[in-house]
Nucleic acid binder design. Structure first.
Lengths: 259, 259
DNA sequence: CCGATTTTGTTCTCTCGTTCACAAACTCTT
DNA sequence: AAGAGTTTGTGAACGAGAGAACAAAATCGG
């Protein structure tokens, strides 16, 4: 599916040219670009590029063009080149990008060259699945501790990590230098857990509970909501199906839906 | 946290005014707007509004202003009003929105007034969690069937739904009129599973596997990638921490990361 | 060393999304 | 009935992101 030019594969490019072109400096230095910050849309795509690069690296591909990379990542090549240009000039004109070098640069930009300790709060079905998810560990995220309300589960060990009681949260988070918290509790408990996490010093939260968390400024929250994703699909599915059923307006169903 | 005016609560607004203002018609009719389609960014927020409305309805709040709704949904009120204006004019100036009425209109627009049957493929930790997720059922999504590769698991029943073998996929999907498929397999199997789903007539896919799925035109894919969410948080966390460690560039780690 | 070829980095344009600000429409009070 | 007070719906300004297109920089073959 992904075509890699034979020329590129048969050659081991040095980086000297890249280095010189960097030392010559374009209009803005890499440091200056970083200061301005990378556009949010680009940040969201960098992990995808990283994954594509890792896949290529595993196949022992050493060089890839923007076209090849873009197709592997599912974006168009102009967008990919522009995204990468925010990080610096890591490609070589007429050649392409060195897979490992570019991969390292992206990893460093995202902050994956250091380790991050995360905690997961709420070890229900989802929390359990998250604790076992190998994708975290493989990207430099260490699960430092698990927390649950239920006294029966406290002490249990999942994927080598012990479940603590919520009362221990503050102490453990501070001891383990946790910076990212994952909330996988029922929605009723989510805000309280969030407050505890923030109180203990966590400044980034990944929220799986279907509620809007309010946090003080300086704290980042990202939300993953399975039900919302399905609803978005349903909207498009309905449009594909064609005509809207206007007659159905007569049968009103309460907002709460079925509980 | 959410203030609801006493005036609004003590009154039961009729919709006659809304109806008249709708029958008078603005520049574009509701049907014309729908034809043009609702902006993608707005579609993504409608389920959030719906959730906020459901919460208000449960507290027996009958009317809410754009300000109140917006704060419950975590957006600003101008954006909320503009979003709602794409659906039609369902509010009353000087009063606000009738909670149940607006809720129904949004639900209808998204397509939640009809039932959707989904199937989940890959019953590992995550698939198991998804099968048990009550958020689906409460919003009109019915889990029609589960599928897994592992012969040992076939026949097992989770949350009242039986696990089928992958060989049955085509038959069951066609029989149950499934329109949405959830892929929760390891990444190696994802594309194959996706192809089978599409082949059986599924035209919307929610993908949890960390790969870029390629699908024929007309098929929608949405991706939920836990690792990517964490990486985005890590980027911002790093920026908050302040200075980039330029010295660390010396110690190069391969792209593939730890496996 | 030179011209042909490849491919990046960047500029320009266009589209999409957000926010502001205010007229229009409604309620309430007197 | 009229004026004061609310709150919506939307036009207009602004900003961010996507894509096309191309000059600049590298390689390659002779």
């Amino acid at each position: 599916m992904i075509e890699v030019s034979v020329k590129a594969l048969s050659r081991r490019p040095g980086w000297s040219n890249v280095s010189t072109s960097r030392s010559r400096e374009g209009r803005r230095s890499r440091a200056e670009r970083a200061e301005r910050g990378i556009p949010e849309a680009t940040v969201a795509r960098l992990p995808i590029y990283l994954r594509a690069l890792a896949a290529l690296s595993e196949r022992e591909v050493t060089t890839a063009s923007s076209e090849e990379l873009a197709s592997a990542a599912g974006v168009n090549s102009a967008k990919l080149r522009k995204d990468l240009s925010y990080l610096g000039t890591y490609g070589t004109r007429g050649v392409g990008y060195d897979v490992d070098y570019l991969g390292y640069q992206i990893a460093r930009e995202i902050g994956l060259t250091q380790d991050w300790t995360v905690v997961i709060v709420g070890i229900g079905n989802l929390g359990h699945a998250l604790a076992n998810y190998s994708g975290f560990v493989s990207r430099g995220f260490r699960v430092g501790a698990l927390f649950d309300n239920d006294p029966v589960r406290v002490g249990e060990v999942i994927a080598g990590v012990r479940i603590h009681s919520l009362g221990d949260l503050d102490r453990v988070v501070k001891r383990e230098q946790v910076s990212i918290g994952i909330v996988a509790t029922p929605s009723t408990a989510a805000q309280d857990v969030c407050d505890r996490l923030v109180g203990a010093g966590v400044s980034s939260i990944l929220n799986f509970a279907p509620v809007v968390l309010s946090v003080p400024p300086g704290v980042d929250v990202r939300k993953v909501d399975l039900s919302i994703e399905l609803q978005i699909l349903a909207y498009h599915e309905q449009r594909k199906a064609g005509i809207v059923d206007h007659a159905a307006v007569a049968t009103i169903r309460p907002v709460g839906g079925r509980r």
